[in-house]
């Protein structure tokens, strides 16, 4: 949708229920892992944004 950040175009099934490290401009996934600590070790000192990807089969309600 115009006007939104369309992350669903770069998030794939393999990323679901995992932590991803996004580039700061949100155009690509730099790395992903089940564990945030393991992901941090992959990323090192790169400037990224961490995000947990929910299952695409679930409705989210908090």
């Amino acid at each position: 949708m115009k006007g939104a950040l369309n992350l669903h175009k770069i998030i794939e099934a393999k990323h679901e229920k995992k932590w991803i490290a996004l580039s700061r401009d949100k155009t690509k996934i730099v790395a992903f892992d089940e564990s945030l600590m393991e992901l941090k070790q992959k990323i090192g000192d790169q400037k990224v944004v961490y995000m947990k990807v929910p299952s695409a089969d679930a409705y989210l309600s908090f």
Partner: peptide, 9 residues
């Protein structure tokens, strides 16, 4: 911007 996510079902 709001951020999108796709719901498969």
């Amino acid at each position: 911007d709001y951020t999108s996510r796709f719901h498969r079902i």
